[in-house]
């Protein structure tokens, strides 16, 4: 997950930022986490698996649409006619 974020954002993502964000999202019911079975790649340690909930998908979609809407006509967004 961390690698995906870093690749997509083009910047480093600290473990603390990732874990605390996940905790907040879980507290809001937007993601669910559970422990996986220990694996050898991880030195016999379990992994925290994350799954986006239905509410999480809805919230992410709303957020994305809000960003797109609010960016229309800005220097970094699409021109109003393209958006329409």
């Amino acid at each position: 997950m961390r690698e995906v974020i870093e690749t997509a954002a083009g910047r480093t993502c600290s473990l603390g930022a990732l874990y605390t964000t996940l905790d907040r999202l879980e507290a809001k019911g937007l993601v669910e986490t559970q422990m996986s079975a220990p694996t050898q790649e991880r030195g016999g340690r379990a992994k925290r698996m994350v799954r986006v909930t239905g509410n999480g998908t809805l919230a992410a979609r709303e957020f994305y649409e809000s960003v797109v809407r609010i960016s229309v006509g800005t220097a970094w967004g699409r021109a109003p006619r393209d958006a329409a």
Partner: peptide, 30 residues
């Protein structure tokens, strides 16, 4: 519980000791 997960993540990502140490201390501080 978090200790095990974090150590597992660091072992899997294998980004070097210094980066791992900074990550762990950063998380503990947060």
């Amino acid at each position: 519980l978090e200790r095990e997960v974090v150590l597992g993540d660091l072992a899997e990502a294998d980004r070097g000791a210094l980066r791992g140490l900074i990550d762990v201390l950063g998380l503990a501080a947060r």
